[in-house]
Amino acid sequence: MSAPVLTTPAPDAVVPGRPTVGQRLTSFMPVIALVVLLAALTVADPGFLTLSSLTAAVRTSAPLVVLAAGATLVVLCGGIDLSIAALCSLATVFFALWLPDLGGLTTFAIIAATGAIGALQGVAHVLFRIPSFIVTLGGMSIFSAIALVISDAGPVRVVDRDATNWLTLYVGGVVPMAFVVALVLVAAVSLVLRLTPLESWIRATGYSESAARLAGAPVDRVKIAAFTVSGACAGLAAVMLVSRNFSGSPTMADNLLLPAVAAIVVGGTAITGGHGSLWRSLAGALVVTLLRVGLPIVGVPSAYEQILYGAIIVAAVALTLDRSKVLIIK
């Protein structure tokens, strides 16, 4: 009589408190995969498990870790950032062009600039309510275009190598500095999330945006912040790439998009948002890197790499997806 007639006595589906076997398995998935991969590679090539090859693998993984860590924040909020690789490429060009004028400040300028660009995408997403994958897909092609135009579609050489030299050092003679920076980044961001209400807000936004908003969580600001950090991470990854390649190029990081997305989902972060962490993406990035360097070792042509990325992305998303949330999968 009085109330809206929708009233079905809402079925109280009581979710069992204990995680299912599948949930347990997926929560350890990245670590298991890492161990299995290491073991398999060692069996295939006993010479693999040496300090030098591990150091090299870890060093290659650093930019990927940074890219994936940043984008993980956006995924945790329930969105996706497809622009990271293109933004990273653009940032390498910026770095090469700005270095002569800014010198030692270039790194900070790059990170600030890419952070601002990321924020811009976040604002467009939040303000105009455009799905994040469209905003960032558009961003991707805009950043590529800018990079092509300002670099004249070719690599820009970096002459002054002192500015990035610090990233090529080794801590204690073994651990590459770039990887240490990546680790510190993951640890720092995770710590900030854990110690402040941010983690609560991000998870709430990712799990259930409307509930978060109705609980007064600053959903819009959290999302913009996530995009900002994602952009800034793309900038940092760019600096790492330049330190290795001594040049900036408009397509330098383009082939890192798929590995970065793969790293996030292999880590077990749910593409539907809420569930996951930066540490998981770190493990995921290591898995992806090991796959990359390991394939030739076991005698698989590197052409299979792409196929493998495709397969693991789909498989990992299928395993981690929160199906209770989306009734109709588009």
């Binding site: 105009f128 455009i130 897909l137 558009g138 092609s141 590529s144 275009a145």
Partner: peptide, 9 residues
């Protein structure tokens, strides 16, 4: 590509 990106958004 940039123009396309702008118009799609």
């Amino acid at each position: 590509g940039g123009v396309q990106g702008l118009i799609v958004v």
